[in-house]
Structures are given as structure tokens and as C-alpha cells.
Design a protein around this nucleic acid. Structure first.
Ligand SMILES: [Zn+2]
Ligand SMILES: [Zn+2]
Ligand SMILES: [Zn+2]
Ligand SMILES: [Zn+2]
Lengths: 391, 391
DNA sequence: CTAGGTCATATTGACCGTG
DNA sequence: CACGGTCAATATGACCTAG
């Protein structure tokens, strides 16, 4: 069944799309060390309660952690907001509206597609820093895709009947959907959940509808960037990471002209290159065009396999015209755990309250920074980042 | 403890205040037999779901029945509305906000002070009919008391700190409190619950406050009509019951000049007279005046004993000046189950779907109507009222 | 250190026995 | 007939353990 949680854990272990060097990460302004941001670490970004730790990419309390962990794999239980999807989530109201609580979780950046402990990726730490950097929820900015999404004809026809159900979770209704702007993995998480919402039949409704077909067709026609672009970082996001503005063009191969970023061939095993091709700003998306549809079986498999999604979209972007035959060879899901991706993210100690761990080999930060175009002071690199929340 | 549910069931079994003849009840227009009102019986008046029966004086579903039965005796669990006390309660939202659900229960007339099966009182049936008569929730009308309540100085000072807690149930905050108008037992239930809310310390707050003293003092100073006036029917309510307008004066002994109602001396045991003195329109309440306070112990006992409340208010009304010594002799709660009150409400069969029960002696309607000034056709009296909701 | 599992607790509402 | 008790189903979040 399409809506069941993924059975294998390999599915989410595809090669990391964005592989910024650890040096790039540490180049960021050390905002975590300011007392103000330290204080932020103590509050759940979803409900404001005292945080219990860094869960699913965000400092959250135990409750919101458990809620997100439970709910993300059981979206069928998320429905019923009667407040237009605009419920305020705080410590007292968090149990009142599951859709809005999940939306808040996603809006602050919680994600199950992120790395786990022991395979913590760089973007995870980056996100952690941006998480700390922004005291308030990100401003809600509509981008082109969101507008195209809502204005498209197919939405007005097919998807409308899916979302118009009274049981459809209002926070995820396209009319209420706003991209968070500049934080692609947040936007993508939101869209991903929204799509799953639309693909499942509304709760307690008959299953006569075939929302999977409609939705996948729509995503296909819309060149939906979520569809395999879990880590398509925007230029502004990269500039935030690097702490300085970057040039912005619309040329597909250079629109994220990271002057400080090396090319793909100059990276060591621990600091693989940034894959520029994967930095795909949503705002440069081409307007929707009606194209032939993929076979339904392939579409559903694509939805379940990030690797296939990536193959699909890479081919789709490279071909001007869309032909079903171009994708017959990727119809079978496969596990693609390359050695390179398995080694690029060694665990990094994020604690400062238990210094004995920093001396162990598996958690120690390399003594010398890898070669990088960016000049990084040794003092920054050697200083562990305090992510602990124990007082 | 003051806030615990009453331990003895005798407490609620004082003499019925309003003892309208069964003939008066049946004099009402037989609205129940119209298909439209029959349809109303099938819907829960709280949430709109299919009703499971006539529970606590209102047609409700099983859920709202259970909720009201649980919640009424455990008001400490009712708090936390974050919608200003204006949540819409329906089948889908009923579990989202306990305070608003309880408020809705009370607004449609649910009451635990009503008689149970086997001691079903006349007002219970009257209420049942009015319940059917009004398809929509009663319009919210502010009366004098409500205004005085909100404007009083003591509210602005003492009660404010009680109600200003973020945990105080907003639907019961005095600022949001509106009498339902013309349905005194509904208003009184609402006020009663509101008072209990204010007397309990807000949830998860320290108990440094002594809201009991403040609230009782306030009620004392305000001549709070709820305080022992559970069944103070208003003239309009009586006119609704009798199906015709009645004269309205402000003279205390005649303001409900029920031309059809006999005096208290002319009633048989099954149709005791209407106690005119208990018909006490809220609109005629005297403006608040500062008076000496009762001893706190007596106040709390009064709160727990309806009989003592009645004694208290009867004496209070008869004495122009308030003196603490006037109440020393009623300081000890007693059970006052008079034979008269125990016999005045024999069970009356309200079913029509199981006619075998109508033949049993304990549920049979008397063959001949009792003597009454109102002319009642035999056909109406002998026709059981259909209160069943089984289709 | 966190992700996920466990489990005590609270809430809900369908069902049923009693009076 | 309704009232109140019962209890299975569900949701929640504190706590624990593996990695
Ligand atoms: Zn939280
Ligand atoms: Zn909501
Ligand atoms: Zn209901
Ligand atoms: Zn509410």
C-alpha cells in the first residue's frame, strides 16, 4: 500500500544531496554561543515548553517529539481542524488540533528524512544552526510554485474534489499552503506531507476517488520540485549558511554561484563537494505544461523511493520533451548506498557538557581542517558547538 | 471539601420548588407529535449527532451524555479553552474544547439537579417540551444580574484575580457570561457552574488564593439568585408552559399571576400547587447592596445543601435588613425529605413504543384527570407523549 | 546524544445492568 | 425508559534503552 510507512530503512539512505564541507558549516557565525540563543535551545520550538532535546532536527519537548514521531508515519489520523488551519500551537493548545500541531512541527523544520544519530549529515547540523539562528518562525512567503500550484487548472478540477472534503486537514489545503521561503527542506517537508494528505482518501470517506492518480498526474504536469528535491537548497539559504551574500542567476547550472564552494572534483572523502546541480531554487521553476503521464506503477514507486525520484527528475530536467519511454529502465526500485555517501558523515560530537566524549576517536573532530577555499580559523573548528539543553 | 461532589443523594431531594399539575403540563400544545419536532428528538442538542435518548433533561447522544455526567462532578478538569469561550460544538469538534462543550450542554438545558427516572418531576417534562419547542439555541440576552455581576466592584478586584488566570475556563468567565433568558433553570445551571469554577483554584495554580471566601461574599452582596433558586421560573417561561400570555407585575407576591393556577390549598397529593413565591423573575432583582456577611462555615454549608439555601433565601427576602444572627439556627445541614415531596412525582410513562409498560400500575397514567381550573380534553391526557427516539 | 519503544495515565463513547 | 458503571479503544507524554 502506498500510504503505509516505508518498510525498509534503506529507502531514506540514498546519497546525500547537499554535502557541504564541515568547514563550510563552521564558517557560520557562532550564534549558538550567545546567551540569547542558548536560551532558545531550552524551549520547544513547536509549543514553547521546556525542550527535552534536539529531536528530528528541532529543539522540542518530549510531547512534540513523540507526537511528530507517531504522526508522521500515520498521516491518516491527521484531520479535523475546524479553525481554518490557523490554530495557534502552544503548551496548552498543542493537543487541541493535530493537523495544526503537525503543520507547526513541519514549519519549524522537523523532519524524519534527516539523518539519525551515527549518520548525522552536514545539512542536519546546518539546519540545527539555522534553527537556532531564527528566534521566530520563518516569515511566510509565497513563491512562484505555490501560486502556480493554487492557480492550476487541474487543481481546480481534480484536486479540488479531494481537498474539498470536510475531513481534509485544513492546514494542508492548497489554499492555505504557504511556503516558508528560503528553507527548502522545510518547504519540501510541508509539501511532501501535503501531497501525502491529498493522496490518502479523506478519513471516513469512501475510497471511490483515486487521488493518487490525480495527484501524481498533477505533480507530473507541474514539475513538482518536491518530487525528489528534498535538499534543493535555495541560494538565499546557502548564503545564510555561508554567512555572506551570493550571486543569483537563473542559469540552471550556475544559479547558485557559490563563489566559496569548490567544484565537485576537489573534495576529500570527509568533505565531498556541494552538488550544484541539486541546488534548485523553487523560484526558477518553469511554468506548468501538460505532458504525457508516467505509468501509474512507476509513479507510485517513485513516490516511495527517493533514489528513483532523483533519477526521474534529473532525466526530466535534461529532456525538453517528456516521453514515457525514457523512464522504463528505472521502474524497479533499487538501493543505492554508495560507499562515498556512507562515509561522508561521520558522527560529530555536538555536546559540550560531557567533554569526555570529545576525546573518543569516533566523535572527535579532526585536528586539522580539510583543505577548503574558505579560510577557517582553527579556533572555531576545534570548539565544539554547544547543543546540549541541560542546565 | 467544598468542591467534591455531594456525598449523599438526599441533598438534591428537597421538596420540588415548582410543582405544576400534570394537567398543566398536558395543556401545552402537543408539539411533540409533529413530524418536525419528532425529528428534533433524534438529534443531540449539543453536538447534532443522532441522539441516544433523553439524558439529563435534553436529547443527547451517548457521548455528550457521558461527558456531562462525568464532567459535572469534576469541574476541576474543565479548563483550557483558547478560543475565547466561543468554540462551535458539533459532532466533529465536541472533543476539542471541554469548557465549551460543557457550556453548550448547560445552554441547551442539561442539568443534574433534575429528577431521575422513578422520581421524574413535572418541570422535567416541561423542560422536555420546551426543549422540543425550540429548534435553535436560545438567544443570548443579558439581564440585569449579568450586568451587575460584571460591573460590581468586588468582581473587578477579588474575582478578577481568580478569573484572570490563563487556566480559567473562558466560557465561564464573567465577561463572556450571558444569561440565556427566560429559561431560569438553564441560567441557574450556567451560573452555578460558573460559581463553582470561580470557587475552585485555577488548575495547576498554587492555592494561595481563597476564592471561596471572595466568591461567597460576592454572591452574598449581590443577592445572587442562583443561590437557592434552581427553579425560579420566570413569567415568560410560565407563559410558554401554559401556551398563553400571562399578566406581569413587579409585586413580589403576584408577579406571576397565573390565572389558571390554583392556590396552594386546593391541590391534591399528585398535583401540588405551584409555589408562587418561588417564581422569582431575575429581572426584578434588587440592585446590589453591601450587607454583613454570613459566617464562612454557614456559607459553605449553604452551598452544599439546597434545603438550607432555600431557608436562607426565604428569610433573606423577608427581612429588609440583613443580620447574621438571623441564620444561626440553620447552620447544621439536615435532610428534609417530606412525605409530600416524595409522593408528588410518581413515575409517568413517557414511552409509546413499548405499550406493554403503559398497562403496569406503577407507570399507568391515571384514568381520570385530577380536578383543575383548566379544562383538559381527555384525549390529550390519555395520549402518552412520544419521547422515544428509536426509529 | 537522539530515535524509537514502552507504558502509565487520561479521555472518550458504546454498551449494559439497575431501578 | 434514563442513570451510572464498565471497559475497549485511543491519545498523550514521561521514561527507558539501544546505538
Ligand atoms: Zn512541544
Ligand atoms: Zn487547527
Ligand atoms: Zn452529542
Ligand atoms: Zn472553547
Amino acid at each position: 500500500m502506498l500510504l503505509e510507512p516505508p518498510t525498509g530503512s534503506e529507502m531514506m539512505k540514498g546519497p546525500d544531496v547537499l554535502s557541504i564541507r564541515a568547514a563550510d558549516v563552521l564558517q557560520m557565525p557562532p550564534l549558538l554561543r550567545s546567551p540569547e540563543n542558548k536560551q532558545m535551545s531550552h524551549l520547544c520550538r513547536v509549543c514553547g515548553q521546556r525542550a527535552a532535546g534536539f529531536h528530528f532536527g528541532v529543539f522540542t519537548c518530549e510531547g512534540c517529539k513523540s507526537f511528530f514521531g507517531r504522526t508522521y508515519n500515520n498521516l491518516s489520523a491527521v484531520y479535523g481542524c475546524k479553525n481554518g488551519g490557523n490554530c495557534v500551537i502552544n503548551m496548552e493548545t498543542r493537543t487541541s488540533c493535530k493537523p495544526c500541531r503537525l503543520k507547526k512541527c513541519l514549519m519549524v523544520g522537523m523532519s524524519k528524512n534527516g539523518s539519525r544519530y551515527g549518520r548525522r549529515s552536514n545539512w542536519f547540523k546546518i539546519h540545527c544552526m539555522l534553527e537556532e539562528q531564527s528566534n521566530q518562525p520563518r516569515s511566510q512567503i509565497e513563491n512562484e510554485f505555490s501560486q502556480q500550484f493554487n492557480k492550476s487548472d487541474i487543481f481546480k478540477s481534480n484536486l479540488d474534489e479531494i481537498c474539498s472534503s470536510s475531513n481534509f486537514p485544513l492546514p494542508f489545503h492548497p489554499a492555505n499552503f504557504k511556503d516558508q521561503g528560503n528553507i527548502p527542506h522545510v518547504d519540501n517537508e510541508l509539501r511532501s506531507v501535503q501531497m501525502k494528505m491529498m493522496m490518502k482518501p479523506p478519513a471516513s470517506q469512501d475510497t471511490n476517488l483515486s487521488p493518487v492518480t490525480n495527484t501524481l498526474n498533477f505533480m507530473n504536469q507541474m514539475n513538482h520540485p518536491m518530487f525528489g528535491h528534498h535538499l534543493g537548497f535555495s541560494p538565499l539559504y546557502i548564503s545564510q549558511i555561508l554567512g555572506k551574500p551570493i550571486a543569483h542567476t537563473n542559469t540552471p547550472d550556475s544559479h547558485t554561484s557559490l563563489s566559496a564552494s569548490p567544484s565537485s572534483s576537489s573534495a576529500g572523502p570527509l568533505t565531498p563537494p556541494l552538488e550544484v546541480d541539486d541546488i534548485h531554487p523553487v523560484s526558477t521553476m518553469s511554468p506548468p505544461a501538460i505532458r504525457p503521464l508516467l505509468p501509474l506503477q512507476l509513479q507510485e514507486e517513485l513516490m516511495q523511493n527517493l533514489h528513483l525520484q532523483r533519477l526521474f527528475w534529473n532525466r526530466k530536467r535534461s529532456s525538453d520533451s517528456f516521453h514515457e519511454e525514457s523512464f522504463h529502465d528505472i521502474a524497479i526500485p533499487e538501493t543505492h548506498n554508495t560507499n562515498q555517501s556512507a562515509e561522508q558523515d561521520s558522527p560529530i560530537d555536538l555536546s559540550v557538557k560531557r567533554p569526555r566524549y570529545t576525546a573518543t576517536p569516533e566523535t572527535a573532530i579532526p585536528d586539522s581542517p580539510p583543505s577548503t577555499p574558505i579560510q577557517i580559523p582553527l579556533s572555531i573548528i576545534d570548539t565544539p558547538i554547544d547543543l546540549s539543553i541541560r542546565t
